[in-house]
Write a protein that binds this DNA or RNA. Structure first.
Length: 354
DNA sequence: TAGGCCATCTGGTCCT
DNA sequence: AGGACCAGATGGCCTA
């Protein structure tokens, strides 16, 4: 389907220049050297890439068709005449039209990608570890979303408690270690490495470089304690109310390629959407989007250095006094600690919205 | 310096 | 014909 774009090899540009398509023109696009231009490759005219099809598809006015130059192959033999519409020279007028078209397409593409990123931001906001300052990467956002859906489905299907370790394990499955730490930190629960390793053994490695296979290092002593985002209470909160209904969702056939696939129809209850809707308020930054590329605003994406795996403290108020922290510090069984945590920390104030 | 992640440009393909 | 979508390519930023 995709044809390789013009690469860096010189042959194509030689061909094109031999056909006289290029006009040396030092001017840059949009009258300025936009940073976006740095990425492209291939043949450029006035700072832009030109393709044979683009140039050849112009069926415009004035210009005369190129002469039938015979292409000479590398060994000097005559190449067969090319079929199809004859290419036309790039006159100024054509160049202008091409440029205008290209700029328009670029703007559309930019805006499309911005829309996609906005959607991803919205998705991040309904994840159980949303933080404005520490963004999940795109891929991790999608993975976590998948796991979240999977985990919620399990809750609905089997009545599994969202407070269980299994829930957290499902959330963390296939995620990179930093993201897993983020999730665990947000939940104030470190998934046990043993369990995750079991999962990985069963499923093979997957995810970001297969990192999840080793573990969520559940730091000991001390919980992962990140500068992470806090757990949005509205995510977990209603879980208890989901215990009741049982849907016919097929169990995720976990572990093909480390992904919990849903072969059958996925029919999450609407009430979940209601839950998510709680998080849909627009963030102020959305309206402040700066469309200038590389404008200096760089989100801090989740990466290993952002999420140290072995530090203690860091959350407001610090987890040190937290039952889970103490569990880890004093090596209490996690379920004991988690029960203690969930009973005291799960926020249910928004349950009425379901 | 390498690697991860990103935004952007680009041309091809499909759809309306 | 034009727009949407897609994937490849590239360079910038950031951190280990």
């Amino acid at each position: 389907m995709m044809t390789k774009p013009f690469g860096k090899t010189g042959d194509v540009s030689e061909l094109v220049s031999s056909l006289g398509w290029l006009e040396e023109d030092g001017s840059s696009q949009d009258g300025e050297e936009s940073p976006e231009m740095r990425g492209h490759h291939g043949l450029t005219v006035g700072g832009r890439i030109l393709s044979c099809t683009e140039l050849g598809s112009e069926d415009m006015d004035e210009e005369e068709e190129e002469e039938d130059e015979e292409e000479i192959g590398p060994n000097g033999e005559k190449a067969p005449k090319r079929r199809g519409p004859k290419k036309k020279k790039m006159t100024k007028a054509r160049q202008e039209r091409f440029r205008a078209r290209r700029m328009k397409a670029n703007a559309r593409e930019r805006s499309r990608m911005h829309g996609l990123n906005d959607a991803l931001d919205n998705l991040r906001r309904v994840m159980p570890c949303y933080s404005k300052t520490q963004k999940l990467s795109k891929i991790e956002t999608l993975r976590l979303a998948r796991n979240y859906i999977w985990a919620l489905s399990e809750v609905l299907e089997s009545g599994q408690s969202p407070e269980s370790h299994g829930f957290v394990e499902m959330l963390c499955k296939g995620l990179s270690q930093p993201t897993s730490n983020l999730v665990a930190g947000s939940l104030q629960l470190g998934p046990s490495p043993v369990m995750l390793n079991k999962l990985e053994d069963k499923c093979g490695s997957s995810g970001v470089g297969g990192q999840a296979g080793h573990a969520l290092s559940y730091p000991s002593p001390g919980l992962p304690s990140p500068p992470y985002g806090s757990l949005e209470a509205s995510h977990l909160l209603h879980m208890k109310s989901f215990k009741g209904p049982v849907y016919d969702n097929p169990s995720p056939n976990e572990c093909s390629s480390g992904t919990p696939p849903y072969d059958g129809p996925l029919t999450p209850p609407l009430s979940i959407s209601g839950t998510f809707a709680l998080k849909q308020e627009a963030s102020p930054h959305e309206s402040e989007r700066n469309y200038t590329p590389h404008s200096g605003h760089h989100a801090h994406y989740l990466s290993a250095h952002h999420y140290p795996t072995s530090t203690a403290g860091g959350l407001p108020g610090g987890p040190q006094g937290h039952p889970l922290f103490q569990a880890s510090r004093y090596e209490l069984p996690l379920d004991v600690a988690f029960d203690s945590f969930t009973s005291s920390h799960l926020v249910t104030s928004q349950m009425g919205t379901i």
